[in-house]
């Protein structure tokens, strides 16, 4: 292994890692928020809106991320949406993740016993407050693990952004590989970076799970 390779390409790889993290974080949290909004609209909205959301969820889940990315990035200009690669990447990431998140939230809603909501109505709490104080904290218990899991899945989907020349980790790795005719070193580093992301996410997920299940521990 040649270490001066890393000296030369280290900064580029690190920047790539930074871009990966940026796209992943903004895209995932955007998807999370959009997914939550969709799940709420599905739960509280009128029937026609529910059909629209249902169709959205099925269509996005039934098509490859790469095609969604292409529609936004290459097709976008045709309906007046001119995006830089990173913008297109993040936006398509938000769109791509949202139906999965919304399904997770939907299952969370269903996991909260209805009796608790009724009890809250009986003492006169408003629906907004019930959502915030009773339903949300409770649904976090069953959904924290699947949320963590999906964040981990999304770490890997970021690699696809390299296809539209987002200068993320895989893109920089490929550049390095092509310029130096090496494979082992760059891809080893790349694996290490993804591994770090996965480990980090699992760690945060475990912490979050401990936090949201605090009240269930027997004293």
């Amino acid at each position: 292994m040649e270490f001066d390779l890393f000296l030369r390409y280290g900064p580029a790889l690190l920047t790539g890692f930074g871009v990966t993290i940026l796209c992943w974080l903004v895209g995932s949290f955007g998807g999370l928020v959009l997914g939550f909004v969709l799940a709420c609209l599905y739960r509280y909205g009128p029937a026609p809106l529910r059909w629209v959301i249902y169709a959205y969820v099925e269509v996005i889940r039934g098509t490859p991320f790469m095609i969604q990315l292409f529609i936004l990035y290459y097709g976008g200009p045709h309906f007046g949406l001119l995006l830089s690669p990173i913008q297109a990447g993040i936006l398509s990431f938000i769109v791509y993740g949202s139906p999965y998140f919304s399904e997770i939230f939907r299952s969370g809603f269903n996991a909260v016993p209805h009796g608790q909501v009724e009890a809250a109505r009986c003492v006169g709490l408003s629906e907004g407050r019930i959502l915030r104080r009773i339903i949300l904290p409770q649904m976090l218990v069953p959904i924290t693990a699947p949320l963590t899991n999906f964040f981990i899945i999304l770490t890997k989907e970021t690699a696809i952004l390299s296809v539209v020349t987002v200068p993320e980790l895989l893109y920089e790795t490929q550049t390095m590989a092509a310029e130096t005719f090496t494979f082992v070193e760059p891809f080893l580093v790349l694996s290490l970076f993804y591994w770090l992301m996965v480990i980090g996410t699992s760690w945060v997920g475990a912490k979050a799970e401990a936090r949201v299940t605090r009240h269930l521990r027997k004293a």
């Binding site: 016993p113 009890a119 009986c122 003492v123 006169g124 709490l125 408003s126 104080r133 009773i134 904290p137």
Partner: peptide, 30 residues
């Protein structure tokens, strides 16, 4: 509904709040 208290067979306490918080919640927010 504030004038009608109800007690259920399954208690329906909010498990993520302490006993005191369960009682105080509506006092504060209703």
């Amino acid at each position: 509904r504030q004038h009608i208290g109800m007690v259920f067979q399954q208690f329906n306490l909010w498990p993520h709040m302490t006993a005191l918080e369960n009682v105080a919640e509506a006092l504060m927010h209703v």
